[in-house]
């Protein structure tokens, strides 16, 4: 189990991503969850996570308005999946590396 400085923020992201991938919430709701978690993360150690959430939220916004509806879902799923992967690989990297992020 990975220890996060902001476990609630991470849990919110993971849940929202899960719901979105199951198509139980829309992109707007997911964006709100990402934004809320991003705003809660202030620690230097998890700056990288804040950036991930920030970029993912904006990428979803960009896709909403620049990708045709028939390709939108796949594009968004890709972003969400990538976010989840990056979150955990980033955390692992932090755990094994003493270098600054």
């Amino acid at each position: 189990m990975t220890n996060w400085i902001y476990p609630d923020a991470v849990e919110r992201v993971e849940k929202a991503c899960g719901f979105f991938l199951k198509e139980q919430i829309d992109a707007k709701t997911l964006q709100a969850a990402l934004y809320q978690s991003e705003q809660e993360i202030e620690a230097v150690e998890e700056k990288w996570l804040r950036s991930l959430l920030f970029d993912a939220e904006n990428k979803l916004e960009e896709i909403t308005y620049t990708v045709s509806s028939d390709k939108r879902k796949a594009a968004m799923f890709g972003i969400v999946q990538q976010l989840l992967n990056d979150m955990h690989s980033g955390k692992d990297r932090v755990k094994t590396c003493s270098c600054k992020q």
């Binding site: 950036s51 991930l52 920030f54 970029d55 904006n58 916004e61 960009e62 308005y65 620049t66």
Partner: peptide, 21 residues
Amino acid sequence: VGVVTENGGNVVVTILRRSNQ
């Protein structure tokens, strides 16, 4: 900062941001 426009830039649709990561 990013801006999505249509109609040759006359209509602003949304605003985007990105980090430096």
